[in-house]
Design a protein around this nucleic acid. Structure first.
Lengths: 295, 295
DNA sequence: CCTCCATTATGCAAATATGCATAACCACTC
DNA sequence: GAGTGGTTATGCATATTTGCATAATGGAGG
């Protein structure tokens, strides 16, 4: 017995006519007639007597109706488990983001998201080194570079660039390098090799070559503060440095470009609250324009 | 929530993998994948975590499963109301038939039907004058002539003929008519005008013209017995008279042909026991061949 | 680390269901 | 008795679902 046929029969039984029941169910009257016929054939029973006067339930139809009503109760209870949450987008969405993007771009804007979707709860976490969307370590991930093939839905967000910076104080004391070859004579600030969380994040070697940084810090802001404090020359995100008066660009022709990608596991495609967050991030990035360059 | 989607999810939940569940449900694995996706989208929830290792139920999936199981119990109970009866053709079928066909042809053969379908109960009743299949006065009706337009499924069974007969004793006493014009000088046996149950049954006027029968009897066998008893000349079914040595054909060139039709209300098309009876009658008529002429 | 196997996901053609339009039906009213 | 209105049933074109074939995935074993 087709349970959808049964559900439709229940509405016919209550309505007393095919036309009215069809309207209530949002299907065509012809469809409902056929679904009912299908059910009667399957059960080898006449459930209703149809005519221009509508549909009268037979005794057999009465008996079946009682059972389907119990099924309906259970189904409605099951549906109720999800109803409120889907409509209100309630629930938690965990965003994994590299701290450059997460702290500098996203964190200041999460207030907008919170006001727009008061029923939503957002968690912002760093992207762990061996990140797995399939393990649900985050619902939405901001990644550097396109994620490898897998069950992820991915979309490029934006490009961004990094460059060499040092504090004025440091350069006054140590001199400003005139060429890349001069860098080996300087104190360098970079990230922790072992904790590089994505192939795209090993840009330090693109700037420093074989020279290993004297000071290795795992977070972008940690590196920023160290460079600002005069620790040495470091590779910083242009959009993070912005117009910071305490920092000077070093060897400006040395620049590297990366791109941020947004990804989430495909099984979350149907979850409205996840889609709301995805849409929000995308729209904010679009609205900011070339934000990492205009600063 | 689509109840068929829910029913399929239940099987996936139990089976732990799409492929096995699809086999159990008799659908393609691809179909099941889509049905599950459809359900998850509708509920805005992830019910299972899918992968090459199969499907693991989420907590939300567990909760929903419990409710669908209760719905399943109710649905199975509903189905059980019909299961045994459909399979065994149990129940009663009422056949309405003109007594010519009903008594002479059908009644002697009902033993075959009973042995073939022991769980079936058959009622043979006369076709009332204002017969209505839609009122379920009979499940299957044998009618003379094609039924008028309506919600009936109709099929022609066979042709049959009627002729004039009288007993030898009567003809010896009253003489044998040489032409139709001579009939007005004879005692005629016919049917009761007011009780003619179908247009096709008013054949008496085709034989007797304006002359009204002296003796009017409502049943074919009643007429037969009256004619056999020497009451006069009557219009009898050739297949009923057969080779009766007591009766002589009168004016053999005067013959009229009618046809028997089988009809039942279209709402009974799906009822197996009705179809079994319909098939039985048809096959018996076919097997008898031109039975009403070969006697 | 590579290969294999059993699983799920998806493009596309085929099969089926659906909606539209209209015929058929019956009860009611004039 | 004819006309009307509201119902159900059905042919056919269109929309949707399904199955097939195959790609993609991840775990197990060598």
């Amino acid at each position: 017995m087709d349970w959808e046929d049964a559900r439709m029969f229940l509405t016919v039984a209550r309505e007393g006519q095919l036309l009215g029941a069809a309207k209530r169910l949002g299907v065509n009257q012809a469809t409902l007639s056929r679904r009912l016929t299908h059910l009667e054939r399957n059960l080898q029973a006449t459930l209703v007597v149809r005519g221009p006067q509508g549909c009268a339930l037979t005794e057999e139809g009465q008996s079946l109706m009682a059972r389907i009503e119990r099924a309906e109760t259970a189904m409605q209870e099951g549906e109720a488990l999800f109803r409120g949450r889907a409509a209100k987008l309630s629930g938690t969405v965990r965003i994994g983001a590299p701290d450059g993007f997460g702290v500098q771009f996203l964190a200041p804007r999460l207030g907008i998201l919170a006001r727009r979707h008061p029923e939503l709860r957002v968690e912002l976490v760093p992207v762990p080194r061996a990140f797995s969307l399939s393990q649900r370590e985050a619902d939405v991930a901001i990644l550097v570079g396109r994620p490898e093939r897998g069950r992820a839905v991915a979309a490029k967000l934006t490009d961004y660039s990094l460059g060499l910076y040092a504090s004025h104080r440091y350069l006054a004391a140590a001199g400003t390098p005139a060429a890349a070859a001069d860098l080996k004579d300087h104190r360098l600030v970079g990230n922790v090799e072992d904790l590089v969380s994505a192939p795209g994040l090993d840009y330090v070697t693109e700037f420093f070559g074989e020279t290993r940084p004297t000071i290795a810090i795992s977070t972008a802001f940690g590196q920023l503060e160290a460079v600002r404090g005069g620790a040495g020359i470091g590779v910083l995100h242009d959009f993070i440095v912005g117009d910071d008066p305490g920092l000077a660009r070093v060897l400006p022709e040395m620049t590297v470009t990366r791109s941020y990608w947004l990804a989430y596991h495909e099984s979350l495609r149907a979850i409205h609250r996840v889609q709301a967050v995805v849409e929000f991030i995308r729209s904010q990035v679009a609205a900011a324009g070339d934000w990492q360059r205009s600063r």
